[in-house]
Every structure is written in C-alpha cells, then in structure tokens.
Amino acid sequence: MANTMQFDLVSPEKRLASLEATQVQIPAAEGDMTAMPDHAPVITTLRPGLVKVTGADGSETSFAVTGGFVEINAEATSVLAEHAAAGDADSRAALEGFLEDARKRATEAEGDHKDVVEKFVADLEQLLEDMV
C-alpha cells in the first residue's frame, strides 16, 4: 500500500496545485468523501465547497471550488474545477460575485430548475461561511 498519491487541481484559468498527498477531502455532489492512496477508481461531480488536501509533510491546504469533476484512482486524485481559488481575499470577492449572480438566477428560475439553482446558492453560501 502506497503512503501518498498524486494530487492535481486545475481550472480553465490555470493549474492551482500539483503535489504528493496522503488524503484529499472532496465536496462531491452526492456527499463529502475522502480519497486516500489505493482508493477504488471513481469519477464524480463536485458541488461548491472546499477541497482539503493533506500533503505528504502533514501540511493542510484548502481550495475553494464552485463545481466540476474529480477522478480518483489508486495512484492519484485529479480535480477539474469550473472555478477554483486558494481562499484569499480576491478569491472571496469572486465567489461573492458568483453568489450574487446565482441569487438573481434563483429568483428568475422556475420548476425543477429553481430547486437546482437554490441548492447551488445554498452551497455557495456554505462555501463562503467555511472560508472564514
């Protein structure tokens, strides 16, 4: 059994992280999950939340994501985020802009689409709260 796995986080803008990790906590669409070395292969979608990475040296780093996909296998975890940030003030301001836009869309949405947009708004609100 390996002690570490490769972790990569990319967004359309840039690669945010590439490091050896012992575990990665993921805000998956169906619920939170933790990937560790020798994990069974999984591909799933992300909801807005914090991806928390424990490095090989024991350090912990968090990245805010607004959605996307994650691929996990025995050797690596790769996050392909719609938008991702390291949690600084600029990132928080961008996420607050996303939240404002999502709230506007929620007021205009109808039917089943309204439920989806309202859930997205709730997830973004929780993400901003978790960043404090």
Score class of each variant (00 low, 15 high):
M1K: 10
A2S: 10
A2V: 01
A2E: 06
M5F: 02
Q6P: 02
D8F: 00
D8R: 03
L9R: 03
V10K: 02
V10A: 04
S11R: 06
P12N: 12
P12I: 07
R15A: 13
R15C: 03
R15S: 12
T22Q: 15
Q23Y: 07
Q23S: 15
V24P: 01
I26S: 01
P27A: 07
A28N: 10
A28V: 05
A29W: 07
G31P: 00
D32P: 06
D32W: 08
M33Y: 00
M33I: 06
A35P: 09
A35L: 08
M36I: 14
D38V: 05
D38I: 03
H39Q: 10
P41K: 03
V42P: 01
I43M: 10
T45E: 14
L46D: 05
L46N: 02
L50T: 00
L50V: 00
K52N: 00
K52W: 00
K52P: 00
V53L: 04
D57A: 01
D57C: 02
D57E: 02
D57T: 00
G58A: 07
G58W: 05
G58K: 08
G58I: 02
S59W: 07
T61N: 14
F63A: 03
A64N: 09
V65G: 07
T66P: 10
G67P: 12
G68A: 06
G68K: 02
V70E: 02
V70Q: 08
I72W: 05
I72R: 06
I72E: 04
N73P: 10
A74P: 09
A76W: 01
A76E: 06
A76R: 04
T77G: 01
T77N: 03
T77A: 12
S78P: 04
V79Y: 05
V79D: 05
A81N: 08
A84V: 09
A84R: 08
A86Q: 14
A86F: 12
D88K: 05
D88T: 01
A89P: 02
R92N: 07
R92Q: 14
A93K: 15
E96H: 07
G97V: 04
G97K: 13
G97Q: 14
F98P: 02
L99W: 03
L99V: 06
L99T: 03
D101T: 13
A102Q: 05
A102M: 05
R105H: 03
R105Q: 09
T107W: 05
E108H: 05
A109I: 01
G111V: 11
G111P: 12
K114C: 08
K114N: 09
D115M: 10
V116I: 08
V117P: 13
V117E: 15
V117F: 13
V117I: 15
E118N: 13
E118A: 09
K119L: 09
D123A: 14
E125H: 11
E125F: 10
E125I: 08
Q126T: 13
Q126I: 01
Q126P: 02
E129V: 03
E129P: 00
E129I: 04
D130G: 03
M131E: 10
V132P: 04
